[in-house]
Every structure is written in C-alpha cells, then in structure tokens.
C-alpha cells in the first residue's frame, strides 16, 4: 500500500492526490464522506459509502476534546469512546476493510503527538491509510509532523480558512498533499440550512492559487449544497450530515445519502 516518496521537485503525487487528479481530469467531482471510526457499525457504513460512489473516506479518530466539531460529531466521538474505541483499535479494523478507495484519517493533534510523529505515520501506513487531516495543527506548527508524514509517504491535507489573508493561501497550498481542505464557513462542523457565502468565495480564491484539488468541507449539509459547492470546487467533504444518518439510520441510510449526493454532483 505504501508508495515510494516523491523526490523533492518531482511530480510524483501520493496515492490520494494522484487518484483525485486523475478523476478531476476525467471530469468527475470528488466526494469524501467523513465517518467516525469506532462508532458501532462504522465499517459497514464506510463500505456502503464506497459502494454508493465515495471517492475516498475520511475516518474520524475520536478525541476527548474535539474543538472543531459541533454537536453531531461530538456525540458520535463520545459514543465511539464509550464503546472502547482507540486509535489502535480503529487502525486494526481499517486494515481489514478491503475497499479500493484511498483512506484518510481526521485526528486531533494530541493523538499524533502522544503516539510520536514517526510512530503515528507508520501506524497509518500499516493500517492502509494514505492521508491525514489534523485540524488543530496550523501551518506554523506543522513542520515536525509533515516531515515524519513525508518520510512515510503519508499525505498531509492542509486546511485553509475563510479568515486567511491572501498571502497565506499559497503557503498553505504549497504544504498541502492529497487535497486542500477549504473550510466552508466560520464555525465548527454541523449541518446548516444554506451553504455559507464564504464556502464558494474561499474555494474560488484557492482555485486561483493552486492546482492541488480543492475540496469544500464543514457546513456542506446536503446534496443541493454539495452541488452548489462543486460549481467552484473540485469536490466536497460531507461530515455531520453523514454521521447523523449513521447515528439515526445505520449503514443503509449512509449509503442512500451518499448515492443521492453522488447523483447531484454528477449531474
């Protein structure tokens, strides 16, 4: 599963970025559902999402203090922790998922820090995960992790926020591997009644400065909003809307929802 690391200045992309670039070139919009790892039923939900047309999956590693998450994902994290989930148990389960799309993890930095950068990167490789999203690790603090991740060919997805001044965006994009996570609004994860104006505005700014795939996430809450976002962006990450369905209706509800979003963005 691991790839040879890209030599400096080479154009060898990681597995996720290569896959996204190829699909984008073929005219496909990218759909990445978020699923809380360790939540009872998560593996079935993940397979259902892949079968329904997900291009990659973001596996959430539950954390005690998820500052970027709203009530739905907080609840899912808490339930997963109560069910005994740990990063290691989730990696063990991920290893035997047997799905053919790239897998990323979304984890808070203390999970990485506590394991140790190099050890964590190797754990991801062993679990068949190719990318990591660390929402409380901004550019200035990302050096040591990125170095370890690069050495293990783990792609570190960087987040870009609507508050970033223009001169910051190219620096964030230059460090991004896999894709750039364009944060859709000022706020935490959770469903909203409308796509915030900041979502398309930031995606437009990012598209102007990078050719790394740009995906909008946080606050993209249904098929119509996903469709609106991909008018500008290369794809979307769907978080709370997926996790809520998993909590309420299980894997089947997740599969149906992803199929609906897939149809809306393919249209």
């Amino acid at each position: 599963m691991s790839q040879t690391p890209a030599a400096p200045g080479s154009t060898a992309y990681g597995r996720m970025e290569q896959s996204f670039r190829d699909k984008r070139a073929a005219g496909r919009k990218l759909l990445v559902p978020y699923i809380t790892g360790g939540l009872p039923g998560w593996e079935d939900a993940l397979r259902a999402a892949v079968a329904a047309g997900a291009d990659a999956i973001e596996i959430g590693i539950p954390f005690s203090d998820p500052v970027m998450d709203g009530p739905v994902i907080q609840e899912a994290s808490q339930r997963a922790l109560d069910a005994g989930a740990t990063p290691v148990s989730i990696f063990d389960q991920a290893r035997s998922l047997d799905v053919d799309v790239p897998l990323a993890v979304m984890c808070y930095y203390n999970t990485v820090h506590h394991a140790g950068h190099h050890r964590f990167a190797e754990q991801l490789v062993a679990a068949g995960v190719c990318a990591a999203i660390v929402p409380d690790l901004p550019l200035e603090e990302s050096g040591p992790w990125c170095e370890a991740a690069d050495a293990s060919s783990i792609e570190t997805v960087m987040l870009a926020a609507p508050t970033a001044p223009d001169d910051r965006l190219p620096r964030v994009c230059a460090r991004a591997r896999g894709f750039v996570y364009s944060v859709g609004l000022l706020g935490v994860t959770g469903e909203r009644s409308a796509l915030a104006a900041t979502a398309t505005a930031l995606a437009t700014r990012l598209k102007a400065v990078t050719d790394v795939p740009v995906l909008v996430g946080v606050g993209v809450s249904n098929a119509a909003q996903a469709r609106e976002a991909v008018q500008v962006a290369d794809g979307v990450v769907q978080g709370a809307s997926v996790v809520r369905r998993l909590l309420e209706g299980g894997a089947e509800a997740v599969g149906e929802y992803i199929a609906e979003v897939r149809a809306a963005i393919d249209d």
């Binding site: 929402p135 690790l137 901004p138 603090e141 508050t163 970033a164 910051r168 964030v172 944060v183």
Partner: peptide, 9 residues
C-alpha cells in the same frame, strides 16, 4: 499556537 487554521489570523 495549536489552533484551527480559522483562528491563526
């Protein structure tokens, strides 16, 4: 300064 990107500025 380990904060979400939104808060860095």
């Amino acid at each position: 300064r380990f904060v979400p990107e939104t808060l860095v500025p």
